[in-house]
Design a protein around this nucleic acid. Structure first.
Length: 560
RNA sequence: UGACCCAUGGUGUAAUGGUAACACUACUGAUUUUGGUUCAGUCAUUUAAGGUUCGAAUCCUUAUGGGUCAACCA
């Protein structure tokens, strides 16, 4: 079955079903969605899910998607975040039709407010936030009317103009919708529409000192852009009533809001506040620390856009609470990297191995061709140096091996990947009993690709030529938290940070890695997938471990 | 002690009144010059109890469990 046919066969999620129905019924000929980040932090894996949903919808159905920054709170928003958000979306592989800002609409929004005031549906309230909270009631008790609720339209118009003109200090007054203080939905109890903030805005500068609240900006921006399907997360369900009320009273384009459950992944946090805290308190090196669930962190770690999109696709969209196993993301990235990553050999914890019967050619060593990727016939080969002295992994040798040990042991044979079959003849130790050298013999007829020896080995080891190995730094990452859901635990979430989330080790790499590029991902044979880090210099290469290879041998041996 | 949202294997998602399916994980086994990859197989009476129906994961009722709502945040 073709990729295409497979996709078509896959059942629609509930939002796609709604759209499919709307299109079929003729309600719309094409759709408009939007991705509406607030530029007050970096995008994370949860946003990736939303991006894939919103942009994916208009890939699947006719229409387009806008990028709209929800920048109505000047005190927390910055241009730095705008730039990173745009970069992340593009890196993920999506293109927006229009780049918009809620702040583009401040003049329109102000007009909308005037319109409501004139209809007697909004009023200026002089209450302090404490007073307002006291009159708000609780989920089980109704609220009470503000003493300023019955001002005349003229008075409200005049006061609102003064608010706009900067005649009042921050927090002294608000514009509120006049709905129903006894409403069962607390958001309908005269919600605040505008507040006074004498703050510098990243785009409008000091032009405004009143700013609209989310509820008076989001739906209105949707309407202005004629967004057909405004998709957000479940916590906005109660806002929908207000969303619809405002659109109806304003008589503007009837955008509709649909909600899905935000995606959570285990062993991490995705609240912007918590992520910011990890950054500012230096628990991580920055927003793009490879342990962070941010898109920039995942990019630096070596996750590919394809693998993140695939992950988002696999976890789907629904309305129930969820905690997705991060192992699924790891599966997606292994699957993609297995197809594209070139193979290299790197020894982490070396022990010297001397091939006693090997006659080195005059040049001192022999070059052996090795395939770059067995999964990709077009990936070509590279030549790797082989000689009398090589390095292998210390744990690829055991003096007294258990029954199913396929690696090197006294008297046993293994193949050296892309080279020869060797047999261990002698173990050399220092006075402390530590193994310092392994003396082996090799089978000349067993040369990789020209093997006439007829010998079958169970194990194949990776290795590097001792004289040509280059020292590299490898940063091994583990989950950032020790528990699946840090926010669900007692006390501060930071108490549950995994102290071993970063482990820096030395590696001895085959020389071809010298030419590695900053965006190259490699599979270090029998180890995992690694990507060159931007901290690399000419003298010292630094690799980030994206993810390990599956290791059923290690797993089996962990069982007590 | 109000309103609203949600409930299908360990995890995530399907099944749209008609045989509970797919993916991941885990476990078997085969293949393998990566203990990787690949391939084959195994793992559920759908939170509970009633009801409607020839027939219910699906519709109704109640219960239980989880989540959301009392920011001049989004």
């Amino acid at each position: 079955m073709s990729e295409e046919a497979k996709k078509e066969e896959k059942s629609l999620n509930f939002i796609e079903e709604i759209i499919e129905k709307d299109l079929r019924s003729g309600k719309y000929e094409s759709i408009v969605t939007r991705f509406p980040p607030e530029p007050n932090g970096y995008l994370h894996i949860g946003h990736a899910s939303s991006i894939c949903l919103n942009f994916g919808l208009t890939r699947k159905f006719p229409g387009y998607t806008n990028l709209r920054f929800d920048d109505t709170n000047p005190t927390t928003e910055e241009t730095e975040y705008v730039d990173s958000i745009k970069e992340d979306i593009q890196w993920l592989g999506f293109k927006w039709e229009n780049e918009r800002y809620a702040s583009d609409y401040f003049p329109r929004l102000y007009e909308f407010a005037l319109q409501l005031i004139k209809k007697g549906l909004a009023y200026v309230d002089d209450s302090t936030s404490e007073e307002m909270a006291a009159l708000k009631g609780t989920p089980t008790e109704p609220g009470r009317d503000s003493p300023f609720r019955n001002r005349t339209v003229e008075e409200n118009l005049a006061l609102f103009a003064q608010m706009k003109n900067g005649e009042f200090p921050d927090g002294s007054r608000t514009l509120r919708a006049k709905i129903d203080m006894g409403h069962i939905n607390m958001l309908m109890r005269d919600p605040v529409l505008y507040r006074i903030k004498h703050a510098h805005h990243h785009r409008t500068g000091n032009e405004w000192c009143i700013y609209p609240m989310y509820d008076f900006a989001h739906g209105q921006s949707d309407a202005i852009e004629e967004v057909t399907h405004s998709i957000c997360t479940m916590e906005f369900v109660p806002h929908r009533e207000l969303y619809d009320w405002l659109i109806a009273q304003l008589g503007i384009y009837p955008s509709h809001q649909y909600e899905f459950a935000r995606r959570n992944t285990n062993y991490t946090v995705t609240s912007k506040r918590k992520l910011l805290q990890l950054v500012t308190e230096k628990h991580v090196s920055g927003w793009d620390d490879p342990r962070m669930p941010t898109i920039s962190g995942m990019r630096r770690r070596g996750y590919t856009p394809e693998s993140i999109r695939d992950f988002c696709d696999r976890i789907g969209v629904a309305k129930r609470d969820n905690l997705v196993d991060i192992g699924l993301l790891e599966f997606s990235v292994r699957e993609h990297l297995n197809k594209i990553a070139h193979r290299r050999m790197v020894v982490f914890d070396p022990v010297k191995l001397i091939i006693t019967n090997y006659q080195e050619p005059e040049s001192g060593k022999e070059f052996l061709p090795a395939e770059n990727n067995p999964e990709d016939g077009n990936a070509g080969e590279r030549d790797i140096p082989f000689g009398r002295e090589i390095l292998i992994e210390r744990d690829d040798f055991m003096e007294n091996p258990p029954k199913k040990y396929f690696r090197l042991a006294p008297g046993q044979m293994v193949r050296l990947k892309s080279a020869y079959i060797i047999r261990c003849e002698e173990v050399i130790k220092d006075s402390a009993g530590q193994i310092t050298e392994l003396h082996c013999s090799y089978i000349p007829e067993s040369k990789s690709g020209h093997d006439t020896s007829g010998i079958k080995t169970k194990g194949t080891l990776h290795w590097v030529h001792a004289g040509d190995a280059i020292e590299v730094e490898v940063r091994e990452y583990d989950r950032l938290f020790r528990v699946e859901d840090p926010t669900d635990e007692e006390g501060d979430f930071k108490e549950y940070l995994n102290p071993d989330s970063l482990n820096i080790v030395k590696g001895y790499a085959e020389p071809s890695l010298k030419t590695a590029g900053i965006n190259d991902s490699f599979q270090f044979l029998r180890k995992g997938y690694y990507k060159l880090d931007r901290d690399s210099t000419v003298e010292r290469l630094v690799f980030n471990r994206t993810v390990t290879l599956k290791d059923s041998w290690a797993r089996e041996n962990k069982q007590p």
